[in-house]
Design a protein around this nucleic acid. Structure first.
Lengths: 243, 243
DNA sequence: CGTGAAATTGAGTGTCGTCAAAACCAGTGG
DNA sequence: CCACTGGTTTTGACGACACTCAATTTCACG
């Protein structure tokens, strides 16, 4: 299912897009130079501070974005304030819900985030013109659906200890996609606070903290400055994730 | 976002498809009579008994299907046997995971199910020829993603009582999509056993049963023959679903 | 009826949530 | 350099909700 992309001389490609990851691994790879030029005219780059809300619940969405760096958390809330993170978006994910005027979820910068944003209308016109763009979007959506279903298993059937281990594994793999299970050691910055991790795993802050210290006292991981995690034995971490 | 479908005289449409719901509300609506004829040649209808496995975990998928009636449950399991239902498919949902040779989930008939199946290759050729087909698929996938995320909130943040109430509401709405919250009474057959409901909600059979009897003793619902549920006060059920 | 499976009910336990206090950390200003 | 502040994280004591194990009842089907 690999299609060879015609490699035109890069003069036709907007400067903005030249080295953009979204053009290589993201949805923009679907577009030819002319289309890129058209879209780039209406696009704009932003950097966003952690904690800032990108899309509010029940707000009308007037733009779509590509995540260029950082982590965006997608959340849903119950009326009494209980919150659940229902997805995390990393570069070069496409951010936004096509074919719906109202968003049913919140999007918030979990870390510092940089975005490339497009007006709603431009993207939708482009989608009508380019089936390849819809194709990429379909692929990303299917991947997100797979991820969501994996997390449903975690949320519904795993213990607190397994949830935290699974979370650490997921982050480790996302930071370093080439990570193979035989290496025993990795190291990374947690993109989420304890509160976020709790909201992601359907737990309380205290339980997350307790499970992390348990992993630490069992010397499966080390933690420095609350955020920096070193996994000493990836295999032992995996064995605690409930498969 | 309503597109007017050209209503060709029905002589061009295969008999098999004439009154098929998948042509009206499902993905087949994307196809013109010629394409329908092509696809119908390779399609076949099946009826399947409850409990029969349609797609096994880690099996190679060689066909796609439309659900014509009944309910299909999508499940995922942990190595020690714990199971989680990650999706339910009703008519006229499209069943199958495009662009992946291996399925990571199990599909099993929850009730008696009738399917219209197509060889993998036919569907994939059709997808290449018809952007409209991919468009419909994208829409269904986005809807499934929305549903999955809704259930993540239920799994992660709701109490057992709220989970069961949410489940009953979801089924009621699916049986009768026109159901408005002001009507106080509906009645339907549960398409799932208690064990299935437990796997869907991340609970045990016993807890599901206890919550159902509580709803019954509080006269929010009535239950006949284990399967037939009558909701006496939809509003009261909704108020217990945690919003 | 009689049988086996599914569902309900009960008693006891454990995991995780709640509430509260202490420790830690980063940043600010004396 | 140190004290102070606000926020985050950790730790502890306790309790409740949901799980486990077990017995009973109900249901579907021969």
């Amino acid at each position: 299912m690999v299609t060879v992309r015609q490699d035109v001389h890069s003069t036709g490609i907007p400067v903005l897009c030249q080295s953009c990851e979204a053009r290589h691994r993201g949805v923009c790879g679907a577009l030819d130079p002319d289309q890129l030029v058209g879209l780039a005219k209406t696009s704009s780059k932003h950097t966003i501070e952690p904690g800032v809300e990108l899309i509010g619940d029940a707000e009308t969405v007037d733009s779509y974005s590509n995540v260029l760096s950082g982590v965006v958390k997608l959340t849903k809330s119950l009326s009494d304030g209980r919150q659940q993170i229902v997805g995390l978006q990393f570069a070069p994910d496409f951010l936004g819900r096509p074919f719906k005027v109202e968003s049913a979820i919140n999007a918030e910068a979990a870390t510092a985030v940089s975005l490339c944003s497009f007006p709603r209308a431009s993207v939708e016109r482009m989608m009508r013109e380019s089936p390849e763009l819809e194709h990429r979007l379909l692929k990303q959506t299917l991947n997100e659906l797979d991820e969501a279903r994996d997390w449903m298993v975690t949320l519904g059937r795993k213990t607190a200890a397994e949830k935290v281990a699974s979370f650490l594994l997921m982050i480790a793999r996302n930071i370093d996609p080439t990570l193979d299970p035989n290496t025993n050691s990795t190291s990374f910055e947690l993109p989420l606070t304890r509160a976020d991790i709790a909201d992601f795993l359907g737990l309380t802050i205290e339980t997350v903290s307790r499970q992390l210290t348990r992993l630490r006292t069992d010397s499966v991981i080390r933690i420095d400055n609350n955020r920096h995690v070193t996994v000493d034995s990836l295999a032992r971490l995996a064995s605690r994730s409930g498969a």
